[in-house]
Design a protein around this nucleic acid. Sequence first.
DNA 1: ACTTTGAATTGACCTATATCAAGCGTATTT
DNA 2: AAATACGCTTGATATAGGTCAATTCAAAGT
Lengths: 195, 195
Amino acid sequence: MSNFEAFFDYIQEISGKPLSEDDEQLLMAHFKPKKFRKRQYFLQEGDVCKYIGFIVKGSARTYTVDDKGHEHILKLSLENWWLADFESFYKLTPSRFNIEALENLEVLQSTNAQIEEFLKDIPAFSAMANVISQNNTIATQKRMQTAMSYTAEERYEDLISNYPQFLQRFPQNMIASYLGLSPETLSRLKKNSSK
Amino acid sequence: MSNFEAFFDYIQEISGKPLSEDDEQLLMAHFKPKKFRKRQYFLQEGDVCKYIGFIVKGSARTYTVDDKGHEHILKLSLENWWLADFESFYKLTPSRFNIEALENLEVLQSTNAQIEEFLKDIPAFSAMANVISQNNTIATQKRMQTAMSYTAEERYEDLISNYPQFLQRFPQNMIASYLGLSPETLSRLKKNSSK
DNA sequence: ACTTTGAATTGACCTATATCAAGCGTATTT
DNA sequence: AAATACGCTTGATATAGGTCAATTCAAAGT
C-alpha cells in the first residue's frame, strides 16, 4: 500500500537500517491509516493523547490557549513528521494542547503500548527513535535560542531559511503565532524587509 | 568511591533498573572525575563538545553571545544533571554555546564513543537515556510554551514554583538572563510582586 | 450569483520591557 | 585595610511590538 511505502522509506532512511519483511508486516498490522478533514482535531485540550501519528499527507498545528484567550502555536507539522503531544502520550496525562488539521490530513497512527513493542522488536524502529529524539533535542534548543536572542525580524528571516515550505503551506497569521508575533506585526515586518 | 555512589543511585532511580557489579565497574572505568573552578569553562564557543558531564557537585550555565554582544542563558545546571551541548556532542560539530562553572564544579565525564558503548552494554543506562530524552522533550516544550504565552512576571512565578533551588543557587542577574529579561526588569518585578 | 467569513493590510495609539545612567552596599583581590 | 569590582536597586527615557479599529480582498458556503 503506497501509504506505507513512504513510511518504510522514512524509517530506513532516518535509522540507516533496513526493515525486514516481517518488520513491515508488523508495522502494517499496528499502524492504522486515519483521515482528518481540515479543521478537525487530532487532539483536544484535556484529552489524553492516546495516539501518535505519522503524517502521510496534509498539515497540522499544535497550539495552546492562554488565560486571556490568545492562541499560541508551538508546532507546525507537515508530511513525514510525527504528530503528538509527547508529554501526554508518554505519561498518559491530559494534554494542555490542541492539535488541529490545517489541511485534510492523513496519518498512520498507533498507541503508546504498540510503540513500546516496536522499539523492542524492530531494530530500525528503535534506531529511528533515538535519532529523532536527538534531532528533537537539538531543534528545540535551537528554537529556544532563536526565540531568546533574535528580534522579530531575525526570527522571520531564520524561519524563511530553515523552513521555506512553511510560507507556501501555512497562512501568515499561523506563521506569526508560531514566531510569537501578532499578525499585524508580521505584516508590517514583511513590508519593511522587502524595502 | 562516594562520587560514584550518587551517580549509580541516580541511574537506577531514573531507569528503574538495577546496575550489576560489572555495570558499575564499567562505568567507573570510563567516567572520569574532573574538577572545574568557579569561572572555568567546561566548553567554549567554537570548540567541539567532546565530553558529557554528570554534575556531582556545583553548578554551571550554558549561554550564547549574540551579535550585539549580549549574553543569553539557555540552561542553568545543578547536581544530578547532565552537562553538554548535545548538538555538538552528538554531531561532533563546533558549539555555539559556552558552558561555564558558576561555582566550583565536580563532574564525571565521558566521551560520545564511550556513551554509545554504555547504551549497548548496560540496560539500565540505555533505559535512563530514554527517560531523560523524554523528560527533556517535555521540559523544553514546556519552557517554550511558557516563554511564548506568559508575561515576565508569570515566567518568574513559574520559575519559583518549578525550580525554587535556583533562587538560592544563582545570582539574580543570571536568573534574569535565563528568563529572557534584563536584570533591571527582574529587580523591579520582584519589588512589585511583593506588594 | 450572493452572502458571509476570514485573512491581510494599514493607521493611531498603548504598554511592557530594554537601555542608559547613577548610586549603594558587599564581596573579592591585593 | 584599602582598592576594586560586581550585584542590586532606582529613575528617566526609548522602543519594539501589541492592541484596537477600519478597509479591502479573496475564498468558501448557500
